[in-house]
Amino acid sequence: MPANPKYLTPAFWPRFSKITAAILGSYLVTVSFHQMLISWLDREDMLITMAYSGFIVWVALMIVTFIAKSGWKMWALYLLLTAIFAGLTYAGISYDA
């Protein structure tokens, strides 16, 4: 049974933004989140945890991206989260040193 055409996005840029936000944006958020955890918690334990939870978080964020209405808003949210996690990573490294 084919998909209902009213739910499909015919334009290129909205579809492109959703796909890239799902793949690249969610990956950036996942990696920056786990780097933040590594900078604040025990490195060895977090590396083992990241091997399993990283994939789960990445896939969950991909699903959230495709549920959202706008890919550009998801890009903005993902870049904001990445910047916040990067700042907390920097703070964790500075605090540890």
Rank of each mutant, 00 (worst) to 15 (best):
K69C: 08
A22T: 01
L24P: 03
G25P: 00
R15Q: 12
A83V: 07
M46Y: 04
L28M: 15
M1F: 13
P14G: 01
V57N: 02
Y78I: 02
I56L: 12
M74V: 09
Y95E: 11
A51D: 10
L47V: 03
G25A: 04
A21S: 07
W72G: 11
D42K: 10
A91T: 06
A3W: 06
K69Y: 12
I56H: 02
I56D: 06
A51G: 15
D45C: 11
A86I: 08
T30R: 01
A83M: 12
V64D: 02
P5D: 14
G25C: 03
M46A: 08
Y90C: 14
K18D: 02
L8Q: 11
M50R: 08
G25F: 00
L88A: 04
Y78M: 05
T30S: 09
T82C: 09
S94R: 09
I56K: 05
Y90L: 14
K69M: 13
D42H: 14
S70Y: 15
Y52G: 10
L28S: 03
T65L: 02
V59N: 07
S17V: 02
E44S: 15
F85V: 06
A51L: 13
T30G: 05
Y27S: 12
A68C: 11
L80T: 11
L8T: 09
Y52V: 10
I48P: 03
F12L: 14
G54R: 02
Y78K: 01
P5T: 14
L24D: 10
F16D: 05
A11Q: 15
F55W: 13
W40I: 02
A91Y: 03
I38W: 05
Y27T: 10
A83R: 06
S32H: 02
P10A: 15
V64K: 00
V64F: 03
R15L: 14
E44C: 10
K69T: 15
L37K: 03
T82K: 01
L8K: 08
Y90W: 15
L80I: 10
K6V: 14
F33C: 06
T9C: 07
D42R: 09
K6L: 10
V57R: 01
A91F: 05
I93T: 09
V29W: 00
L61W: 00
A21K: 00
I67P: 00
N4S: 13
I56P: 01
Y7G: 05
V64N: 01
I19R: 02
T49L: 15
F85Q: 02
M1K: 09
F12G: 11
S39Y: 03
T82E: 09
W58E: 01
G54Q: 04
I84F: 09
Y95W: 10
R43N: 14
K69H: 11
K73R: 11
Y7V: 12
L47H: 12
L37D: 02
V31C: 06
M62I: 07
R43S: 12
A86G: 09
T30F: 04
